[in-house]
Write a protein that binds this DNA or RNA. Structure first.
Length: 144
DNA sequence: GCCAACGTTGGC
DNA sequence: GCCAACGTTGGC
């Protein structure tokens, strides 16, 4: 099982929005690296939900419930092919104490995260160590 | 609102 | 296939 981090602007779609839905298609990714990360996801993989621009913090955890499939909002390219894909996710639980980007940058064990190094990547990997530490910092008693 | 970082496009 | 120009993202 792998861990991930996915970004969304809370103005557009927040973690609260996710908790109000039974399941959500993570559509709208238009970057090949991010898409490839989604194609690498397995059922049951967990991902942090990060609020970009507004908040700039990790606010919750979600789970992959459907493997990558064509993005329903993507237009076919000039060959009539849809190259953009996405997974479906469900909310698992919020972090009692959101972990901010500022704190992540100040934490040596987290300063090399893809979130920090590749700030424009909207879907990136998280190592098991990073995952456990952020869960702890976020106030979770049990590491999912 | 600015700017750095990065991806994409198009000319050669 | 290289690289300059341009567009977009996201932090500040």
């Amino acid at each position: 099982m792998a861990y991930w981090l996915m970004k969304s602007e809370p103005d557009v779609f927040s973690f609260t929005d996710l908790t109000n839905k039974p399941v959500e298609e993570w559509h709208g990714v238009r970057n090949f690296t991010a898409r490839n990360n989604m194609k690498a996801m397995k059922l049951g993989d967990l991902a942090f939900f990060y609020h970009s621009n507004v908040g700039k913090e990790i606010v919750g955890i979600m789970k992959v419930v459907k493997l990558a499939h064509p993005d329903s909002t993507a237009e076919p390219n000039d060959k009539g092919k849809i190259v953009w894909e996405c997974v479906d996710v469900v909310a698992v639980e919020p972090l009692p104490k959101p972990v901010t980007l500022e704190v992540i940058k100040q934490t040596p064990a987290l300063a090399n995260m893809a979130l920090v190094k590749l700030s424009r990547l909207s879907v990136g990997p998280v190592s098991p160590d990073e995952w456990a530490l952020i869960c702890k910092m976020g106030g979770l008693k049990k590491i999912p």
